[in-house]
Amino acid sequence: MIRVKNLHKSFGSNEVLKGIDLEVHESDVVVLIGASGSGKSTFLRCLNFLEIEDEGEIYIEDQLIQPKSTPLNKVREKVGMVFQHFHLFPHKTVLENIIEAPVKVKKIPKKQAETEALALLKKVGLAEKANVYPYSLSGGQKQRAAIARSLAMHPKVMLFDEPTSALDPELVGEVLTVMKTLAQEGMTMIVVTHEMSFAREVADWVAFMDQGKIIEIGPPQQIFEDPQEARTKEFLSRVR
């Protein structure tokens, strides 16, 4: 589904990604953990080409994406992204947020897009919020709406960058529940999170990033119970 080879990315003289390799198969849920500044966000953003790598290769569905020659908007249709701060469109209702890209990008008839959007809203538990503006939603509701918006494009893979970090603790659960459902339905997901319980329960693979590299990857059990690398151990002892 996604294959990353030797990915490098610098901002000025600050080398943030120092050669990342990762292979994600269909329906895999990969949880990325690591200290602040280790490059998790930058890595996810590279997968969606919001940042362009300096070096290395990214294959999406076995297609090598060359940012200079591949139309990135077409690639992004396949790769959904959920942000820490939601970024719903404030001048559009929840329903309009969701149908915007299907109608304007995929040219799906508006009626059909609305029907699909309502089904998605039901799925994330926001059926009754279709016609309100984002400002009136709670953080958890905003994030669920943002997930629905992303799903409306039928992405092949979903990227989540700390989707619950901006939420009040009591609202974290409702978002994680939606993500868990997605995982169970077989969505391919790469999730950056500090919610270790989610990683344990939902992840197929947990990858630990440190200073721009994935230094350890394995099933959650192995990473949490029997980490091999000293730095993984040290990180886990701090977050527990």
Binding site: K74, H87, V105
Partner: peptide
Amino acid sequence: GQMEAAQSLGMTYPLAMRRI
């Protein structure tokens, strides 16, 4: 983040400019 969210949904830069 508005432009990034729009682009991550597959919108081109001009479309995201105009609509978002």
